[in-house]
Design a binder for these strands. Structure first.
Lengths: 244, 244
DNA sequence: CGGCAGTTTGATGTTACTCAATTTAAGTGG
DNA sequence: CCACTTAAATTGAGTAACATCAAACTGCCG
């Protein structure tokens, strides 16, 4: 099976219950039983990469539209002086960016956070499928809408809310997305982010993120260790982080 | 002429050289010489409103897609405790939001900043035009891309940059947009924003905005009075506010 | 002239950053 | 399994940036 990574991908994307699964599913069709390597469609290709690998660069152009198939990555904007703003954490099934469907030049950079699998689809093929299939069309529209909604919330969090609220909001935003891709027991979420990532996402320093986590731990709201986030007091976390 | 406000609108939108003018232009066609009130298309309607008027509410649904025709407005997200994040200042020709073309429920609120004229198009009519005309299609796509680009920049500004940098960035962002709709002489831009608006847009208090403006004035970078922003030292302002 | 909205200024408080040292965790090779 | 190395997290002390509160000032309009 490992010989045919695209099969694994197709299965992943078709079955994963996240909001853009419809996009991948519609694109690939149902996972065929008898698919073999030589039947892999020419408009799709697959690559793996190690944690930390640069997956896309701003201003770089590509004929492909990329989807994260496995692992975690993040989309970010880099400033000249080295600071960066993480715009979104990408989970399996996520497009690098919905905009990339229409625009061949990346507006942002993307980096692997864990070991990842990435699939690229020829943009022309997607456009063809798009005109042919209403399902693909509405999947694209939905992912654009979700993107706008998320961005709005993040902007509001960054502009108006305290460090604690921003971090709580980030966790609450990620939890359902993680849960859609993993079986969650005892409120324990797989969580590979370093505090540096959290800091770059919510506009704080890693040192301050550490302090806030200490407060949250001391109040028995959560525990975080060994790549696992355990939520102890969800209602209180929501009281802090929810937007409305 | 005032009897037929939609004519004034058509003329405004077709001629204004901003990036979504193609959208309005494609939708309305060239401004006809002989158009009269009874020829006004049934899928379009026009309203005026005073400064401060609420033009759209989050979670409210509408069958229309709205475009600002004259004056200034802003799109924002309101928090329960009264704080608000201004997401974008709307200038003549701007859609309230590109997302509204696809989604009938508003994700955000919109308020008039000056006296405004607003035009509403039936969403169904836009969709029909969209399938018929590649021009309308690409105009929509372009406004979505521009939206994503702007939002990314704003996120980065809010998350990573100082008060001074954020304000300079806001001004630099607005200047070309204002210039596209007004004749600018001597670097003097019409500028109806109150410091409260700037504060809500860049995530500061009005008091602090005032202090920053004082610094900028003292360094002879700009002057701001009577609704006019005068830029005295553009290169220096760009050094402070430009993202790259 | 008085009232109102917006701006400015000062004094003070709070939040978050910086710098630096220490501890913990995670690998790595013997 | 254990020493060694390295990255990440934690903690403390001092500082800078921004917020808060309150008062004074400005321009505008009735």
């Amino acid at each position: 099976m490992a010989k045919y990574p695209e099969i694994q991908f197709a299965s992943l994307c078709v079955t994963c219950p996240n909001r853009i699964s419809g996009f991948c599913g519609a694109l690939l069709g149902p996972p065929p039983e008898d698919r073999t390597a030589d039947q892999k469609p020419g408009w799709q290709n697959f690559v793996s990469a190690r944690a930390g690998k640069q997956l896309a660069d701003r201003n770089q152009a590509s004929g492909d539209v990329f989807v994260l198939c496995s692992g975690w990555a993040f989309r970010y904007f880099q400033l000249a002086d080295g600071r960066r703003q993480i715009l979104k954490f990408l989970l399996p099934g996520d497009l690098f960016s919905p905009v990339a469907i229409f625009e061949k030049t990346f507006l942002f950079s993307v980096k692997a956070l864990t070991e990842v699998g990435v699939s690229g689809f020829a943009r022309s093929a997607i456009h063809a499928k798009c005109t042919a299939s209403p399902d693909v069309q509405s999947a694209i529209v939905n992912s654009c809408i979700a993107e706008a909604r998320d961005t709005t919330e993040l902007l509001t969090a960054l502009g108006q809310r305290s460090a604690e609220e921003r971090i709580a909001h980030l966790l609450l935003h990620l939890m359902p997305r993680i849960a859609a891709r993993n079986v969650i027991r005892d409120q324990r979420y797989p969580f590979p982010l370093r505090q540096q990532h959290i800091a770059d996402a919510v506009g704080l320093t890693p040192v301050h993120v550490s302090r806030i986590f200490r407060l949250l731990r001391d109040r028995h709201l959560l525990e975080l260790s060994e790549g696992v986030l355990k939520i102890l007091d969800l209602p209180e976390l929501e009281r802090i982080g929810a937007l409305k």
